[in-house]
């Protein structure tokens, strides 16, 4: 094979770009997070204050609440997406008229800008002008008010995320299902296995890598959701839908308390990386060892 120097040469531009725009900003955030710095306060200078910001963050009830809300949001959204996505992918495996057409329609939400998704869902759900509360009221007598009900706002953000990102799950799972070999399924049917047994013992283990990878990418993106929720609820009512990204954007930057905001950012990044790393190493890496 060619010398590894050539390999590094091919990687160099990628590493350079990501270093300049990914790592350096991170180092900067890390550095600022150990300072007290509010450029618009009485003392606009940066004052090194050891880990006082972090000391404050772990007691910040608002931040912890937003962390909890994020976990709930990500959990419900990702689980729903994977379940619906799997069933839709399975349904696409059959042959039926207009399959390509329906698949195209189903992928459309993917290309809608998050900020547009947020605005259109806001338009649909705002009480008095939105169609959804109106219909729910007419048909079922339900009162959906995302302006006052925390539960309603939370549900709408989850539904919006499901609408927006289920197509991605469906697509990756179709890709996984298409590549499955037919033999084990035929064998299982000959042996008289029911659909449920086939799912648990054959389909699931075989698509598990794809499933984990899909969950991984969705988890990553759901944790960093900002635009949509910012547009839809602005984090309200109260702080019901103020997920960490929104929290940083809404609470920290307008108050220009940069030192403290940086500490929050570092913790959010830390948690994201740890969760993703555990998923990556714990679920994907062992597979490599055993099967390789």
């Amino acid at each position: 094979m060619q010398s590894n120097k050539l390999g590094w040469l091919f990687l160099a531009p990628t590493i350079l770009v990501l270093f300049l725009f990914g790592v350096l900003p991170f180092i900067y955030v890390l550095w600022v997070s150990f300072h007290q710095w509010n450029p618009f306060a009485a003392n606009p200078n940066m004052i090194f204050n050891w880990a006082d910001n972090y000391r404050a963050v772990v007691f910040d009830a608002q931040f912890l609440a937003s962390l909890g809300a994020t976990v709930a949001f990500v959990f419900f959204a990702v689980v729903t997406e994977v379940i619906i996505g799997y069933f839709l992918a399975q349904a696409f495996m059959g042959d039926f008229p207009g399959k390509a057409f329906f698949r195209t329609i189903h992928t459309l939400p993917l290309i809608v800008a998050p900020i547009i998704v947020g605005s259109v869902w806001k338009l649909m759900t705002t009480p008095s002008i939105g169609i959804i509360p109106h219909l729910l009221d007419n048909w079922f007598g339900l009162n959906l008010n995302i302006g006052t009900s925390a539960l309603a706002a939370f549900t709408v953000t989850v539904v919006m995320d499901v609408w927006h990102w289920t197509p991605l799950v469906t697509l990756t799972l179709i890709a996984a299902l298409v590549s499955l070999p037919a033999d084990p399924f035929e064998q299982a049917q000959i042996d008289g296995a029911g659909p449920r047994q086939i799912f648990w013992h054959i389909t699931l283990p075989m698509i598990a890598p794809a499933l984990v990878a899909t969950v991984f990418i969705r988890l990553m993106d759901a944790l960093r959701t900002v635009d949509e929720v910012l547009m839809l609820t602005g984090g309200g009512p109260g702080s019901a839908t103020r997920y960490v990204g929104v929290h940083i954007f809404k609470e920290v930057f307008p108050r220009t308390n940069y030192g403290y905001g940086s500490a929050i950012s570092v913790i959010v990044l830390y948690l994201t990386i740890v969760v993703c790393w555990m998923l990556y190493t714990g679920l994907l890496a062992p597979r490599k060892g055993k099967e390789g």
């Binding site: 890709a175 298409v178 984990v212 990878a213 994907l284 390789g292």
Partner: peptide
């Protein structure tokens, strides 16, 4: 036989790992 057909990005990384280990 199946492992060599891993379809998604991360799963496919496992292919690579077999060689690099």
């Amino acid at each position: 036989g199946m492992e060599t057909r891993t379809p998604t990005p991360l799963a496919a990384a496992s292919l690579e790992e077999a060689e690099t280990s």
